[in-house]
Design a protein around this nucleic acid. Structure first.
Lengths: 227, 227
DNA sequence: CGAGACGTGACATCAGGGTGACACTTCCGC
DNA sequence: GCGGAAGTGTCACCCTGATGTCACGTCTCG
């Protein structure tokens, strides 16, 4: 289901928005400050952000600037009473995808929400890999476990890609090497163990007792997204 | 260069739009009916379509419906005097990406054009680029870090433009060369390193420990506006 | 000719990948 | 159960290729 976060300090408005979004079949929630909003966005990805500009302390512009440093940034519709053209231009140039002036017609806003969500369809979902409390951006070579961020090397990404494609299936080292390294590379099979070691340190709660990258004695390794 | 088609039967307005879009560095042209527009779109792809709703014979809604049958459909901003909410909803649900009501502010429309074009892979069109204590005017080839002003060369600007459009994403040297140098130039990939070096001297507090133009070992470079 | 922009090569440095060693675990036949 | 063989966890180290950095050559434009 599509997830939407509303950052709006007018609680009545926020509630109205959330209710209507839910009525549209979307998963919506709201917070009343930019700081809270960013905290929520860091916890887990959202598909769309409805953002007020005039917030206490941290402004909507600040939130826009901060978005790019998130693991996955949502699409953004700014919803603001500020109707000066300069504000619209600034918000859009800071990365907002749309700008709706208050007061707005509800059905128009919902249509704009649909238009933004429509873009998501195939956008980068192939890039994202999510299981348990781990998120991976294969394109950015980055992995987040809870709040901890790790960098991934090219080969680590290839291995994750391979495991994700064949969950719960034991993969032989030889197979892993062929798929991740390619046809023309022949490293020792023990090299795979080293990469498993590195990956476990990044994705397991307790790398010594792996629950996602499990050893299949004599048969290689198996990836269990569920744990 | 980005290509834009304007479908607008008010010739004065169409001409004004085209002029302003060209002034922004875009390749713009206009036609005055939906039929002509579709013919042009069938001839060759456009990146963006500015579409009036009230056209003679074939309406803007009809154009929207016809777009999906094109080999490559452009992004669409509807520009219309019809301000009924129902029209906005209908246009957006028919696939329009944005809807601007006449009369509109020119700078807002241009910002919305930039926002749409930004979604296409490639370079940002905004002139001002701001992050941390750095401000860049891409059109004037100037960069300010705090109070220090630097001049930028053509290629430095192109690289910044490219990085700005894809924040936090590692860009391969080959990709940087293709986008910033163009299709027909083939400098050594190490040339990119030299430009990174120059840019770091201009935008980093400590060029030896870059926080904005970060090396992604084996993958190229990544631009982190947030630092 | 001079200045700046661009491209290349050279050299030092660095990080990832690969290997081998050693300890520990699992399997299997007894 | 027991012991050996084979498989695996883990680490430190080396090597190669990638990168940081600079100097110099070339080109263009005034």
């Amino acid at each position: 289901m599509r997830t939407i976060l509303v950052i709006e300090d007018d609680l009545a408005l926020a509630r109205g928005l959330v209710d209507n979004l839910r009525f549209e079949g979307l998963e919506a929630s709201s917070v009343s400050s930019g700081e809270e909003g960013l905290a929520r966005l860091r916890e887990r990805p959202f598909d769309l952000l409805l953002l007020d500009l005039m917030l206490p302390s941290m402004s909507g512009f600040d939130v826009l600037r901060a978005l790019s440093s998130l693991p996955t940034s949502p699409r953004v519709i700014v919803v603001s009473a500020r109707d000066a053209e300069a504000d619209v231009v600034r918000a859009l140039d800071l990365g907002a995808h749309d700008y709706v002036k208050k007061p707005f017609g509800l059905s128009e806003l919902l249509a704009r929400v649909r238009a933004q969500l429509r873009e998501l369809l195939g956008e980068t979902l192939a890039d994202e890999l999510v299981f348990a409390d781990v998120r991976v951006s294969l394109k950015r070579f980055r992995l987040w476990k809870g709040k901890k961020e790790s960098l991934l090397s090219h080969l680590e990404v290839e291995m994750l890609r391979l495991f994700a494609a064949r969950p719960d299936e034991p993969l032989k080292r030889s197979e892993i090497i062929r798929q991740a390294w390619g046809e023309d590379a022949y490293p020792s099979e023990r090299t795979v163990d080293n990469f498993i070691l590195k990956l476990r340190k990044k994705i397991e709660d307790d790398p010594a007792r792996p629950r996602h990258l499990v050893t299949e004695f004599g048969h290689g390794y198996r990836f269990c997204p569920a744990g």
